[in-house]
């Protein structure tokens, strides 16, 4: 199978959907000629023109609002939010408007829009350009949240997102734009709410989102050499969440670590851990562990930034201790 970058995969997904459906359009800052600062959209304006690849002023709440209204009246906008950190600017339009319109209208109005944005620290971009804010929007009923972990995932999830009749927020990890993966030439979609079991194992389950899937895989590799068999699962979408697959694995291995790059407190790791505790309690041999980003604004200094995010070493270390039964009375 050919290999392409995550960036190319997103670009292909958008191009294919724009060819298929003339109501799909892209709106955001420097999306046209510049193709975004990460160059993810390069070439799209040449094919689809500036009517469908729309450059905006630096007015996030404004173009987000325009997208909501456009989505309610017969188009399918893909909003490009340059950095996930700018979610804080669009919160009203996304969470009070887009997320609730279908419900508040008694199901009469739809808001089929995609907000594509990014996440991920360690790019030395400091506290306002490094956040992973997916938990924040996952808290709001009415929004679906996809977190691709590779080029393959990014393409399939983007195509599904565009066809979904709800507002969907897709978080791409900005450090993975150049990572390559096998992506078939033929069309495929990845359904929402279907976790992907990347590797089967019997001793422990490692659940990772986005780039943390790679972190879990790397940890699993280390653990395998020590005779610990880890199962690695990527939920793909945190809303909807494929509880069934996660619970099945938890029941099988009896030990679970959830790894996610959002802040650990009040986040995705806590939510998944809690569901496993509630629904697989009698099958567990150890407390479900969370590994998120530290609860600090992302620091600029490399010396500090690197220790704020989960690493394969830390995942493997925690896994070992769980398997050895050391953390049964963990504080």
């Amino acid at each position: 199978m050919r290999k392409i970058t995550l960036s190319q995969a997103v670009n292909e997904a958008l191009a294919e959907e724009m060819r298929r459906d003339p109501t799909v359009f892209i709106i955001g800052e420097d999306v046209a000629e510049a193709g975004t600062p990460f160059k993810v959209l390069s070439g799209l304006v040449e094919e689809f023109g500036t009517q469908r690849v729309v450059d905006t002023p630096i007015a996030e709440p404004g173009f987000m609002g325009i997208a909501v209204g456009a989505a309610m009246t017969g188009t399918r906008p893909v909003v490009d939010l340059m950095f996930g950190d700018f979610l804080f600017l669009v919160m009203d339009q996304l969470c009070n408007q887009a997320a609730k319109t279908h419900y508040m209208s008694g199901g009469k109005l739809n808001v089929p829009l995609v907000l594509r944005t990014n996440m991920g620290a360690t790019r030395r971009s400091a506290a306002q350009h490094s956040q992973s804010l997916h938990a924040l929007v996952a808290h709001v009923p009415g929004l679906k949240i996809a977190m691709p972990s590779s080029a393959y995932e990014a393409k399939g999830l983007m195509k599904t997102a565009i066809r979904d009749n709800n507002p969907v927020v897709i978080f791409e990890d900005k450090l993975m734009y150049n990572d390559k993966a096998g992506v078939p030439e033929e069309e495929y979609l990845i359904p929402f709410g279907q976790a992907n079991v990347l590797q089967e194992g019997v001793d422990i389950t490692l659940i990772g989102t986005s780039s943390m899937v790679q972190v879990c895989q790397a940890a699993a590799e280390v653990l395998a050499k020590e005779g610990i068999s880890a199962e690695v699962i990527d939920p793909r979408t945190i809303v909807p969440l494929d509880e069934e697959t996660l619970l099945k694995s938890a029941k099988k291995t009896s030990r679970v670590i959830i790894v996610d790059e959002g802040h650990q407190s009040y986040g995705v790791t806590g939510e998944i851990a809690s569901r496993i505790n509630e629904k697989a309690f009698y099958h567990l041999d150890a407390p479900v562990l969370r590994l998120g980003a530290m609860d600090v604004p992302v620091p600029f200094s490399p010396a500090l930034e690197d220790i704020t995010v989960p690493t394969p070493e830390r995942v493997a270390d925690q896994a070992r201790r769980l398997v050895r039964g050391e953390l049964i009375h963990a504080a």
Partner: peptide, 22 residues
């Protein structure tokens, strides 16, 4: 203290309330 970097650089004691990346 290295927490801000280029985009947040400021000498607060001289009345600079901060550089902003937003």
């Amino acid at each position: 203290r290295g927490k801000g970097g280029s985009m947040h650089i400021a000498d607060q004691s001289n009345g600079n309330l901060g550089a902003n990346a937003i």
